[in-house]
C-alpha cells in the first residue's frame, strides 16, 4: 500500500490542463441569449398545438427600421382564395423578444373576402417577427419579417 505515493493517475499534467481548457470553453459559451425563442415556440404550441408549420403563404409588411418600438405598423396578407371551402381561419403574431411572445391573433372566415389584416404592435427590440396562419383544412403556414428597432419598448422605463 505504501509502495508508490508519487503519481496519481487521475492528475497527470495533461489531464489537468485538458480539464482547465474544458471549463474555460464551457464558461465562454453564450448564456441562453434567445430564451424567448423557446417562449415563442411554447406560445405557438399553446395556440395551435404541436402541429407541423409550413413556411410560405404568409406575407408580412413591416417597416425595415422602426424608430419607435412602441408602435410599429404590421400588415399581414395570407395567400388564400377565401372561399367557403378554403379560407384562413386564424392569424397570430408572435415575437421572439417581447416579454409576452403572443402579441395578437385574429379570427377570419370565408366572409372576410380577403385575408389581409393590419395593426400596430410594440416591440422590445430588433427581432424577426413571426406570423402563423391556420387554414380551414387545419394546415399551418408561417411568414417572418426582420425589423430593426431603434428605440425599444419595455427597456427604457
Amino acid at each position: 500500500m505504501i509502495g508508490k505515493p508519487d503519481k496519481h493517475p487521475d492528475f497527470s499534467r495533461r489531464g489537468v490542463l485538458g480539464l482547465g481548457a474544458g471549463l474555460v470553453s464551457v464558461a465562454l459559451l453564450p448564456l441562453p441569449a434567445f430564451a424567448a425563442e423557446d417562449d415563442m415556440r411554447a406560445a405557438q404550441v399553446k395556440l395551435f398545438g404541436d402541429r407541423p408549420i409550413n413556411v410560405g403563404r404568409v406575407n408580412l409588411k413591416v417597416p425595415p427600421i422602426a424608430e419607435n418600438g412602441y408602435s410599429v405598423p404590421v400588415s399581414i396578407n395570407v395567400d388564400s382564395p377565401m372561399t367557403s371551402g378554403d379560407y384562413v381561419k386564424r392569424i397570430a403574431i408572435f415575437s421572439p423578444r417581447n416579454p409576452v411572445s403572443h402579441i395578437a391573433d385574429f379570427e377570419l372566415g370565408p366572409r372576410s373576402g380577403k385575408a389581409e389584416v393590419s395593426t400596430r404592435v410594440r416591440l422590445g427590440g430588433s427581432q424577426i417577427l413571426n406570423v402563423i396562419a391556420e387554414m380551414s383544412d387545419g394546415s399551418l403556414w408561417s411568414g417572418t419579417a426582420e425589423i430593426t428597432v431603434t428605440l425599444a419598448a419595455c427597456i427604457i422605463m
Partner: peptide, 13 residues
C-alpha cells in the same frame, strides 16, 4: 396581448 400598441388599430376586410 400586452404587445399591442396603445390606441389599438385594426384594419380587416
Amino acid at each position: 396581448g400586452p404587445g399591442v400598441a396603445a390606441n389599438p388599430f385594426l384594419s380587416f376586410h
